[in-house]
């Protein structure tokens, strides 16, 4: 029990003192996972929209594949992206291995299926509800999809938060692709792994608490954005 108390005190001390290294690591975590979430959304939402309106024969297999890919193991994603970005790999010329860009690529690969699969189901459910209305208003397929995206905006926000949560909480992919370089590619989760292997359990737990706090703040911001959007209704 004293370990938990020690870590909580350490967490408070780290945050209260604005520890420069902690701030740097926390900022990188948010920057990498936030960017990955934005890029993943730009890929996944159009994909989900296409799946909702298409009658193509590939729809069913693609849906099953996306759903299955929600279980992609981060270390496998990390390993594959590592091999791709390695100087000896096909994308080696980019020089992205052991850089934040490489980590963004890995996390984007990891969460794109999650956002696409959840968004597809959300849009499908909404489509069932709105189909007759859109049909009776004579909306085209793409007008319908655009309206569905807007109508499900609050649910889709939660979907994006799920993707962000998965990204910022994973350690396997960023460890492999980023290399946990101090001041360069060290993020909250790899720092926690490092502290744990140093036997600094209180410090590791403290970082874990800070990570949870970051996620909490991001979610609170999303919630207030939602409230703010809803504020124009009486």
């Amino acid at each position: 029990m004293s370990l938990i108390v020690d870590s909580a005190l350490e967490a408070i001390r780290l945050m209260a003192s604005g520890d420069a290294r902690l701030m740097e690591v926390a900022q990188l975590s948010v920057r990498v996972s936030g960017t990955a979430t934005i890029i993943a959304a730009l890929i996944a939402l159009p994909l989900a929209a296409w799946l909702v309106q298409t009658r193509s024969a590939v729809r069913a297999p693609v849906v099953v594949m996306l759903n299955a890919c929600m279980a992609l193991p981060p270390v496998i994603v990390g390993l594959v992206v590592y091999l791709l970005l390695s100087r000896s790999g096909p994308l080696g010329a980019l020089g992205w291995l052991f850089t934040p860009n490489g980590m963004i690529v890995a996390q984007t690969v990891l969460i794109t299926p999650i956002i696409a699969a959840l968004a597809r189901q959300t849009l499908d459910d909404a489509q069932l509800e709105y189909r007759d209305l859109f049909g009776s208003l004579g909306l085209s397929r793409w007008q319908s999809v655009a309206t569905l995206l807007y109508e499900t905006r609050f649910s889709l926000l939660i979907v994006l938060l799920a993707g962000f949560g998965r990204a910022i909480a994973e350690v396997g992919a960023v460890m492999m692709v980023g290399g946990n370089i101090a001041g360069e590619t060290r993020v909250m989760t790899t720092a926690i792994a490092l502290e744990t292997s140093k036997g600094e359990l209180a410090s590791a737990l403290a970082l874990g608490m800070v990570l949870l706090l970051i996620v909490l703040v991001v979610n609170a911001l999303a919630q207030s954005a939602k409230t703010w959007i809803g504020r124009r209704y009486v």
């Binding site: 509800e129 709105y130 007759d132 209305l133 009776s136 208003l137 004579g138 309206t147 109508e151 124009r232």
Partner: peptide, 27 residues
């Protein structure tokens, strides 16, 4: 008549997640 000259009212009204006014404007 073409869809544009018809309107359909459902037993359970299907309303968009917008203001009363925006629902009409949307149509």
């Amino acid at each position: 008549p073409a869809a544009a000259e018809q309107a359909l009212i459902f037993q359970r009204p299907v309303l968009l997640k917008r203001s009363v006014r925006d629902n009409v404007v949307f149509a």
